[in-house]
């Protein structure tokens, strides 16, 4: 909770939280708010924005605004699934690899190396063939392939603190591995992971649309933000403004994620705490009158 309060004490943190809350609301309510059936085609293809079609129509005459709203849920959830999967499969073993002995360390390191070496599309197609086609399966595959980044980041950050005297002091006091990770390690690992997470959320949108193009994950004609962007790009000469709406939505989401990650990094660690303390001290000083000069040299 302290971390949430500290993030909210920063303007950038507040902006990021507001934007991400709106995006989350859009993901939950978006499909319900769509004014028209997002899948219904019409003869009115590639129409400009108008009263009945606020963002125009696409090459099959479907209402772009409705498709954008309808696609929010699957796009946002897809990205989140990738991020959560990468976090669980990557960051947690990355931290534990430092503590759970050499066998676990060796196995997870080799697994991470293997995942890095696997060709993304081939692996995705193979897993989909094995587990069946669906957005969850596609996102799990993507998450697994992104996880080595989280594994390495979390492991490096953990290694930096694992042998530090304050961790040994906790060990001498009888702390368990769980206690040490919760109290000393997690706070140091969180900022670099938050930055990696923000990047992954952005990459997630693009991956969802890439996989859709291959017929994996979200099945056409179901809309996604990335899918809308990809299909609109083919009709740029007719509708140069069309990719703008999905692009702006993706951009804002990724930007807000990065902003939040930066805010987490800024308020974490000693520098972050000092930064927040300085702000508090400044605020306190502003509330008090200036000290009166007593004169002298």
């Amino acid at each position: 909770m302290t971390m949430v309060r500290r993030v909210l004490s920063l303007t950038s943190g507040r902006i990021a939280v507001v934007i991400l809350t709106l995006i989350a609301l859009l993901a939950v309510l978006g499909p319900l708010l769509a004014p028209q059936n997002p899948l219904a085609t019409s003869d009115n293809t590639l129409a400009a924005a108008s009263g009945s079609h606020w963002l125009g129509t696409d090459y099959l005459g479907r209402d772009t605004f409705s498709r954008l709203l309808d696609g929010s849920r699957v796009s946002v959830l897809g990205s989140l699934e990738v991020a959560v999967m990468a976090l669980v499969v990557g960051a947690i073993p990355g931290i534990l690899s430092v503590y759970l002995g050499r066998t676990f360390e060796w196995l997870t390191l080799r697994l991470a190396d293997t995942l890095v070496a696997l060709p993304f599309l081939l692996f995705a197609v193979a897993v989909i063939a094995l587990l069946g086609n669906g957005i969850t399966q596609a996102m799990l595959v993507t998450g697994a392939l992104v996880s080595p980044l989280f594994y390495r980041v979390a492991r490096a950050a953990t290694l930096a603190v694992a042998r530090s005297p304050y961790v040994e002091a906790a060990l001498v006091a009888g702390a368990s591995t769980g206690w040490i990770v919760r109290r000393h390690v997690w706070v140091k690992v969180l900022p670099p992971i938050a930055v990696a997470l923000a990047q992954t959320i952005g990459v997630g949108f693009i991956i969802v649309s890439s996989l859709t193009f291959l017929g994996i994950g979200v099945q056409p004609p179901a809309p996604t933000w990335g899918g809308l962007l990809a299909s609109d790009l083919g009709y740029l000469s007719y509708q140069p403004w069309a990719p703008l709406a999905p692009a702006v939505l993706i951009m804002i989401t990724v930007w807000a994620s990065n902003l939040l990650a930066d805010a987490i990094r800024d308020v974490s660690g000693e520098a972050g705490r000092a930064f927040v303390n300085t702000r508090k001290a400044r605020a306190n000083r502003l509330g008090k009158p200036d000290p009166v000069s007593t004169g002298g040299a």
Binding site: S164, Y166, E168, A169, V172, H184
Partner: peptide
């Protein structure tokens, strides 16, 4: 048994 480390800066968690 308790232990006091040599380096007073690094023996205390900078975040606590």
């Amino acid at each position: 048994v308790q232990y006091v480390f040599q380096d007073p800066l690094r023996s205390l968690d900078p975040d606590l």
